[in-house]
């Protein structure tokens, strides 16, 4: 009776077929994700009965028609999604779904990273989180006040410097995580090396290379689609829950420092959620106090990386020089010379 079942794989450029998937996901109360590159669908005759998508190294939008569940169709979908990922040399995969499917995907080789609000789960097909946690444990420092900061620093400004300096003064030890994802104007290597140069005088600081578990396309896809203003609270909450339950507890982090956010809606919303999620008891891990530090200003306007990027574009170096540390300014000048 399965003889009319067919599986197909196609990319997101096929708008007619993508529209059909969107309808199918709607029926199954799932949202279409805009970053999916490859879709897998299963049809019985002409009727769609299951689908799934691959976005980077994340499997998502996996759905089976309610009348066809329990027939192992999802195994077909996952098999084809795995194949699609592996032929693209993506071996270390993540998966988004809903909590009722945890066990099921566990049987497909995925381990739970975090569950959030009974609505969303993130899983991975490796033991990378476990290994990362071991590494963090070895970097743990003693102290009453263990601070933390997560920054992108695109690029490193006097604002970042001020935030880190203040946090470092107030902490016995400060852990800084630099967002690893290459989704910014400046590369990860440039961003982290500018931070390193800009804070070399601070002695109670560990600079961590970010990971898939801190503001990455895996844990927080909508963070990187800012221009579309798709502020998805659920992803923000998931990211913060991972930070608190899976990472911060291994370093004994007690505080998280953030700069006030006057411009960016996504970041502003993230900061609001941060207070809610980190500071309230959740029965899983210790609470983390969120400390907002006012941004420093130049010319009565807050210093931000977006302002620096704008000035750079406008070639307004006279103003720019006031917003960034000398180390960053020298780096930017080199870039300008290279352009000429």
């Amino acid at each position: 009776m399965n003889s009319n079942i067919s599986v197909s794989e196609f990319d997101s450029g096929n708008t007619r077929r993508v529209a059909k998937i969107k309808d199918f996901l709607d029926k199954n109360e799932l949202d279409m994700s805009p970053d999916i590159e490859v879709f897998v669908t299963i049809k019985d005759e002409e009727e769609m009965i299951a689908c799934g998508g691959l976005a980077g190294k994340v499997l998502k939008c996996i759905a089976v028609d309610s009348s066809r569940r329990g027939q192992g169709l999802i195994l077909k979908v996952i098999t084809h999604l795995l194949n699609a990922a592996l032929v693209r040399n993506r071996n270390e995969l993540f998966l988004f779904s809903t909590p009722k499917n945890i066990e099921f995907f566990h049987d497909c080789g995925f381990n739970l990273i975090e569950e959030c609000d009974g609505e969303i789960i993130l899983m991975e097909n490796t033991k990378n989180l476990e290994n990362y946690q071991k590494k963090l444990t070895s970097l743990k420092k003693d102290g009453d006040l263990i601070g933390s900061i997560v920054i992108n620093a695109n690029p490193f400004t006097k604002g970042h410097r001020y935030l880190i300096e203040e946090a470092s003064k107030r902490s016995d030890w400060l852990h800084i995580f630099v967002v690893r994802e290459e989704a910014s104007e400046f590369t990860f290597n440039d961003r982290i090396s500018l931070i390193k140069k800009g804070i070399s005088d601070l002695k109670n600081v560990t600079l961590h290379e970010g990971s898939d578990y801190i503001i990455s396309k895996a844990t927080f896809p909508t963070y990187f689609i800012k221009d579309k203003r798709q502020v998805n609270e659920l992803y923000a909450k998931l990211d913060l829950n991972i930070f608190r339950n899976q990472l911060a507890s291994y370093l004994g982090i007690t505080h998280r420092f953030v700069g006030t956010e006057p411009y960016c809606k996504v970041t502003n919303n993230y900061n609001k959620n941060m207070k809610k999620i980190l500071a309230n008891p959740n029965g899983k891990s210790a609470t983390i106090e969120v400390v907002e530090i006012d941004r420093i200003k130049f010319d009565d306007k807050p210093i931000s990386a977006s302002r620096v990027r704008k000035l750079l574009k406008e070639k307004n170096y006279e103003e720019l020089v006031n917003l960034v540390p000398t180390t960053t300014y020298e780096f930017l000048l080199e870039g300008i010379k290279d352009d000429k």
Binding site: L75, K76, L82, L86, N89, N91
Partner: peptide, 18 residues
């Protein structure tokens, strides 16, 4: 190289080699 074979369906096995 990395490679894989099989499926996740019942009575089968999915094997990845790296």
């Amino acid at each position: 190289n990395s490679a894989h074979a099989g499926t996740l369906e019942s009575s089968d096995v999915y094997i990845q080699i790296n």
